[in-house]
Amino acid sequence: MNHLPQGWGRPRDDVYGAYDASYLQNSGPNQHTQQPVVTGTSVVALKFKEGVVIAADNLASYGSLARFTDVKRLRTFADAAVVGFGGDVSDMQYLDRLLTSLDTEEAYGTTGHTLNAHNLHTYLSKVFYKRRSEFNPLWNQVLVAGVDQEKKPFLASADLLGTTFSAPSLATGFGAHLAQPILRTLAPDEEAAAGLSKEQAVEAIKECMKVLFYRDARSMDKYSIAVVTKDGIDLRENEKLEAQSWAFAEKIRGYGTQVN
């Protein structure tokens, strides 16, 4: 999986040859979703001693057009977990409704037991796998952050193919290339992650958001960040990268026709 959601779930160009875009035309037989339309870019997350920090920017792109700039891609689930969505935004909205109804039905019971992040991840991955097996995928890669049944930090990924994995730090899309190396130097294994404080983790995630803002063209400086611990969720949806700006770009001289 790379940083281009358009490429997810497709045969790799270097393996199968260049993709023939004529297949994307809508004429002909009824088709399922074959490509994401409005997309969100990276989600990054890191475990620390008591929980998990997760972040994603507030941009939804329409191809290279920065189409929606106020899109909240971190969704909470019953004070127990945060799901960070990359990929297609309409599929994210569908999944959000699915999780809302799951939460509602879960609350019918009187035992007070709500699903934890681990349960939620299993549920989501089965939804993804079922839909890919019907050749009607939900075009997302998601990170599920929270605590498990033993109240220990939980972080795992699930994607449109039903592939799942878990690690002390995770990043989707471009973040897998740019953020993950930064996070892995800080938390190479579970023990190292368990030694991180909340402040350290938040700082590392913010640093990743900064790098992504400068090097991922489908990103922006407004983002959402959440800290999940056994005590609940602290979600901030309108953070801004401090003192960061692309304004310097117009002063750059010496490229192309602009020789001085």
Binding site: A60, D70, V71, K72, V89, Q93, D96, R97, T100
Partner: peptide, 8 residues
């Protein structure tokens, strides 16, 4: 609304 992503 359920699934809404922006605040308008």
């Amino acid at each position: 609304v359920d699934g809404q992503v922006g605040s308008g």
